[in-house]
């Protein structure tokens, strides 16, 4: 992965970075002409990803880019979240929804993101870190 291939790079380190990344994602999705509903879904997904980084890995990065769809197809937004945190022991369980290792949480972040986006990939290794890549295609006008 090359950071230079991305339009936006967000470093997540402080709690306030969660709200900042949410706003940046929202603006970018708006500029890409996503519908209001999709802009909200994208901003919410980024908010969840940023919070997971802040909470579990302390710090990490979120990369955002526009992916051209080719001549006939509409473009997509790709969001990549990565950290070198503790990793997830049981990924299947973590994305199934309702599972959480936090005290005050619903455990619906990852499961929610998966439902909001068109594609969802997660790779995690205990002691190494976590990478989540999601995409949402814009509807063709």
């Amino acid at each position: 992965m090359n950071p230079q291939d991305y339009d936006i790079v967000l470093k997540i380190k402080d709690e306030s970075d969660i709200a900042v990344s949410r706003q940046m994602a929202k603006n970018f999705a708006q500029k890409m002409d996503f519908s209001l509903a999709d802009v909200t879904k994208i901003a919410t997904a980024v908010s969840e990803l940023a919070r997971n980084i802040y909470r579990y890995a302390k710090e990490g990065y979120i990369y955002i880019r526009k992916k051209e769809g080719g001549s006939e197809k509409a473009p997509a937004i790709e969001i990549l979240a990565c950290d070198r945190g503790p990793g997830i022991e049981n990924v299947e369980l973590a994305i199934s929804g309702g599972y959480t290792t936090s005290e005050r949480s619903l455990g619906l972040g990852l499961a929610g993101i998966r439902r909001l986006m068109d594609s969802f990939h997660i790779e995690s290794e205990v002691g190494k870190g976590t990478v989540v890549i999601v995409e949402k295609r814009r509807r063709v006008f």
Partner: peptide
């Protein structure tokens, strides 16, 4: 907002 309600319900919240 309707789009917020839609997002929450899709997430199962």
């Amino acid at each position: 907002q309707p789009q917020v309600a839609l997002t929450l319900s899709q997430m199962g919240i």
